[in-house]
Design a protein around this nucleic acid. Structure first.
Lengths: 309, 309
DNA sequence: TAAAAATACTCCATAGGTATTTTAT
DNA sequence: ATAAAATACCTATGGAGTATTTTTA
């Protein structure tokens, strides 16, 4: 089993045409060089150099071996370089997934920030519902996911990473627009637009409603159900009804006065987003860097700075 | 300095997805495989496999390393195969040289015989005068040469390999044609065609003439000097005069009755051809095979079987 | 005679083994 | 409970050194 050292020694002798000079060049002693060349010649079953006089002259076989030796060296270097780029966490390819809100409103921003200063990495964002993202992470198709809820699996690790808040949103001219302590009674008769059953947003809202004694959306006047956050947003703007929407999805609309919100008394609309990764598999350095970047939390500051501060 | 063994182990683990199975496949023990993978991971600075449960699963880095590992393996195999072809002496390239007679009348035949059963080798024949061939062998441009004389050089090794004989040739109708014991006097008045001064054939003939008391060609009636054996042969056939020509050059003509010969009493017209090679450089296996083939002597039997037998 | 490679030897790192423990299904 | 990998430990090969001899220009 001949190894790289022999190749390296061979190339040095080739270059210097001398065992002694080759030894100096690669910081070995002359007898060691002799040994390596002999070992290589034995392994190949043929003499590579004639060491008659002052010079070590390559034989025909040595000449034939030279291009191979060069190529092997180059290939090893290339392999090492390729692996080096993996170590830094600044290059390579990373596939992350996000459920609706994270996938559409949070991750694009995070990825953009992350890639500043890391131009050599490629990040693929896949958007699916929470269960889809989770199962892809479980099967190793995605290294990281960001979702709105925790799914109990002992192969997966969930870690809360960002806080989100549902807002009660309505068109700007609505009678509740801007009110701070809307009571439960005030919304009972309002028409509502909701996300479909099973979505993370729907579940988060129902949990919050149950906290204040309402039987989820069944206790509300739901006039429409929509399959995406975007659709709900458009419906509210069109005056179809009120809705609970992630603050991150309506930030822009609020700033431009295209939507208004109100605050419900005693209702906790906070929810968390979680990073998921496979507990048993190691993350690539790039994935690790991205995870740390997200966990730092400085990239995406809370959307609505706590008004009570 | 990571070596081939690690690559081999990596590929086995990759293939089997298991340290234990990989160990079986390449006839090592599982701890040894563990050790190699760990060493490789340390050398590359990154983990290559996740060994969580039953299976060893490649990490992203492992996946990135795989094609390199494959290529390195392939390259080593290719190098080894290339060198193997050198060992057998049945393939590769060989450059031999021959002075006039060997180059034109002997080596082509020898090369043809040698190549029977060795279709994978390529042999280049270069023809030059003796001194040219010798200097090319001395400088390593030719591995072997066949010449008609020995040049004293301590870097060269000469070895007689074939016997040749000069024949006194003449047109078929000549008065001396076929005579067995032509006396010296009988040729003194004959017109002669000779090779140019300095050629091996000329020297061989002059030496023989001196043996019987003639001052070389100066003692003969030389009516023409020719620069090649072929030219001399044509001249004799055209009736210009008699000549001393290598038996190997006129074999065919004699057989077809296009030329005749006579035997001179007391004149030794034997000469030797020699193989030359560099004494300090090793011959390629192919060259060695060719040298042995020629030295065996069975490929080219003596041209005129000794008539006295 | 001087320069280069080969040889002889010593030392130690490590590849490879066996036996055992840890871990995860 | 079982299968797989890690760990601990031992041995022997061989890589690297120093000192010396052999070879050749």
């Amino acid at each position: 089993m001949f190894d790289l050292r022999q190749i390296q020694v061979f190339l040095a002798v080739w270059k210097t045409r001398s065992f002694t000079k080759a030894a100096k060049e690669i910081h070995l002693t002359q007898p060691t060089v002799s040994g390596h060349i002999k070992a290589l010649e034995d392994a190949l079953g043929i003499q590579l150099f004639d060491r008659s006089g002052r010079k070590a002259v390559p034989t025909k076989a040595g000449e034939a071996f030279y291009p191979h030796a060069r190529q092997i060296m180059r290939l090893f270097d290339k392999a090492r370089r390729t692996m080096d780029t993996f170590c830094g966490g600044d290059s390579g390819e990373l596939e992350v997934g996000g459920s609706n809100i994270p996938g559409q409103y949070i991750l694009p921003l995070l990825i953009g920030r992350f890639k500043e200063g890391r131009p050599n990495c490629r990040i693929v964002l896949r958007i699916d519902d929470t269960s889809g993202i989770v199962s892809q992470v479980e099967h190793g198709e995605l290294e990281l996911g960001m979702v709105g809820g925790v799914v109990k699996r002992n192969t997966l690790h969930f870690e809360p990473c960002l806080e989100d808040r549902l807002l009660l949103v309505m068109p700007p001219g609505h009678r509740l627009a801007g009110k701070v302590d809307v009571s439960v009674e005030e919304i009972l008769e309002e028409p509502f637009v909701a996300r479909e059953v099973g979505s993370g947003s729907r579940m988060a809202a129902e949990r919050a409603l149950r906290d204040i004694g309402i039987e989820g959306f069944q206790g509300l006047n739901v006039v429409a159900e929509m399959g995406s956050t975007e659709a709900v947003r458009q419906a509210v703007k069109a005056g179809v009804g009120l809705a609970f929407i992630s603050e991150r999805a309506v930030k822009e609309d609020m700033e431009h006065g295209l939507l208004a919100s109100a605050t419900l008394e005693e209702m906790t609309l906070e929810r968390s987003f979680y990073l998921v990764w496979h507990a048993k598999r190691s993350l690539s350095p790039l994935a690790e860097a991205f995870r740390d970047f997200v966990m730092e939390g400085e990239a995406v500051p809370p959307c609505n700075p706590p008004s009570g501060e």
